[in-house]
Design a protein around this nucleic acid. Structure first.
Lengths: 192, 192
DNA sequence: AAATGACCGAAATGGACTTTTAGTCATTTT
DNA sequence: AAAATGACTAAAAGTCCATTTCGGTCATTT
C-alpha cells in the first residue's frame, strides 16, 4: 500500500509538472517536492527522467484509445466511426494540457524529448488507425490498399485541414472539414 | 551594359553562395568577392540582404512555373496534367541545390529567412495550383469546391506521400504514389 | 555618376566562470 | 531488512564579458 501510494504520488506530480512546465523545465527536484517524496525515491520506481515521462505518455495514449473506442460502434459505417473518432481525438489533443504544452515546447525550443514524445503518440494513433482500416477492408467496407499508407494519409489530411490550414487562413468549421474529408475519402474529386 | 553586367554578376554570385552555404552563412562580403565587386555596389542594386535573396527566390519561382507549364497540355485531362506537374515540381525541389540547402537550414538551424523563403515558394505553388483547379472546375472536369482548400490539401497530400512518409518508411515508388493519389483524388476510398 | 572599401554599430561568437540539475549512494527511518 | 532520504557529484545549462563578425553607410576615388 505504502509503495503503491508513493508511486502514484510521483506519477501525479510528474503529470502536473510536465503539463504545466513542459519536459525541459520540469526538474526531478520539483517533482519530488510536489509528490512529497525525496528525490531518490523517484529513482526506485523510474530509472531516469525519460522513463518517468514515458509512463505519463503511456497513460495519455491509453486515455486516447478509450476516448476513440467510445465513439466506435461496430454497426455503424466505417467512415462514420472514423470521423467521430478523429473529431474526438483532435478535441482531446487541443484540450489536454500536457499535449498543448508539448506542442508549444517543440515549437519554441525544439526540445528533442518533447518531440519524441509527440511522435510516440502519433505512432500510437497511426497504429490504432491502421488496425481499424484493416478491419474495414476485410469487412468489405473500403477498398483494399496498404493500410499503413492509408492511415498515414488520413492523419496527414486531418492535420492539414484542422491545424496546418489555420496557420494561414481562418479555421474551417467542423462541417466544412467533414465535407472535405468526405470528398476525398468517400467521393473523390472526380465528377463522374 | 556595364550596369547590367554588374547586377548579373552579383545575382549569379548570390545564387551560388545561397545554394552552397544557405542564407545565414552567406555574407555580403563573400558575395561581393565572388562577384568581383565592392560590397557597396551590391547596395546600389539591392536595399539589403533580404532583397537580394528575394530576387533569387523570384527567379526560382519563375523557373518552376516554366517547368510545370511545359507539362500542362490543355487537351489532356486535368488529373493527367496535375500528376505530371507535381512529379516535375517535386523532382525540381529535390534537385535544386538552393532549395535542398534551404530545407536543411530550416531543419538544422531554423533560420527565419530561410523558412520564409520556402513559404514564399510554397505560396506561389499554391497560387498556381489554385488557378488550375479553378479552371478545371469551370470546365466541368472536377467538382466545384473552394479551390484554395483543394489546392492546399493536394499539396499536403503530395508532400505526405513523397517527403513525410520517407522519414519513417522506405520511400514509395512513383507508381505507388500515382496509384494512391488516384485513389484519393479520382476514386475515393469508398468501395461503391 | 558609378564604384569602392574603410568604417560603424549591432549582433553573433567564444570562453571563463557560476549555477542548475539528473542521477548516486552512504546514512537514517520504518 | 527494506524503503526512503538528501547531501553530494559530474555534467549540462546559464551568465557575463571581451572579441570578432557582418550588414549596412558614406566620404573618397575612378
Amino acid at each position: 500500500m505504502a509503495v503503491v501510494d508513493r508511486r502514484r504520488q510521483i506519477v501525479e506530480a510528474a503529470e502536473k509538472s510536465f503539463a504545466l512546465f513542459g519536459y525541459k523545465a520540469t526538474t526531478m527536484d520539483h517533482v519530488a517536492k510536489i509528490a512529497n517524496v525525496a528525490k531518490g525515491t523517484i529513482y526506485t520506481f523510474f530509472a531516469n527522467k525519460e522513463e518517468l515521462f514515458d509512463e505519463i505518455l503511456r497513460s495519455v495514449i491509453i486515455e486516447m484509445k478509450k476516448i476513440t473506442e467510445q465513439e466506435v460502434q461496430d454497426d455503424r459505417p466505417f467512415f462514420e466511426n472514423l470521423y467521430q473518432s478523429m473529431d474526438k481525438l483532435l478535441e482531446f489533443r487541443r484540450e489536454h494540457e500536457l499535449l498543448v504544452k508539448l506542442f508549444q515546447e517543440v515549437r519554441d525550443f525544439g526540445t528533442p524529448q518533447a518531440r519524441e514524445g509527440l511522435e510516440k503518440i502519433e505512432l500510437a494513433i497511426l497504429d490504432y488507425l491502421e488496425r481499424q482500416i484493416d478491419r474495414a477492408a476485410k469487412h468489405g467496407e473500403i477498398r483494399e490498399f496498404d493500410p499503413k499508407v492509408i492511415a498515414f494519409v488520413l492523419v496527414k489530411l486531418y492535420i492539414a485541414l484542422t491545424s496546418d490550414w489555420n496557420k494561414i487562413h481562418e479555421p474551417l468549421s467542423k462541417e466544412q472539414i467533414r465535407e472535405f474529408s468526405q470528398i476525398f475519402l468517400s467521393g473523390g474529386l472526380s465528377k463522374t
